[in-house]
């Protein structure tokens, strides 16, 4: 039993260290590469609150989008957002299209963070302005 407790502890400690390291990497990366990890710790931005938030649909090219489970993850996460009316996932092109409710939107940083917290990465974001 000692062996299994040792192995279990070792695995979980390594996991915790790894998670912490990735979290720190993400914190540093927020100032530069937005494809790295960046948790949403503040209330999500809704409405046109900064210069990156523009009304209209948003097309997001997503890295790691290879299966239905991945697609469902993004659908679930964005479906919980008050500003989101609908989301369409195109597995062929690894593209999601976010349809916002009238007068509402999410800024680019929030979209990136939501996708990263879902376990995926953003390649680029394209806004279709009205």
């Amino acid at each position: 039993m000692k062996k299994i407790i040792f192995m279990f502890t070792a695995l979980m400690v390594s996991f915790a260290i790894s998670a912490q390291a990735q979290s720190m990497t993400g914190t540093h990366a927020e100032h530069g590469d937005h494809d790295n990890h960046a948790h949403v710790e503040q209330p999500l931005v809704q409405g046109a609150q900064d210069d990156k938030t523009v009304a209209g649909d948003v097309h997001v090219s997503v890295k790691g989008l290879v299966c239905d489970f991945c697609a469902r993850a993004l659908e679930k996460v964005f479906g919980k957002q008050e500003a989101v009316n609908d989301i369409d996932v195109d597995l062929d092109n690894k593209l999601i299209t976010i349809d916002f409710k009238d007068g509402q939107s999410l800024n680019d940083d929030t979209i990136r963070a939501l996708i990263q917290d879902s376990g995926y990465n953003v390649e680029n974001i394209h806004r279709v302005t009205e």
């Binding site: 299994i4 979980m12 996991f15 690894k94």
Partner: peptide
Amino acid sequence: GLVKRWNEKDSQANFYVKGGI
């Protein structure tokens, strides 16, 4: 635990640890 995920444009790789008591 998902220790690491590698997301690429057309692929995905994962490394997990699992344990139970």
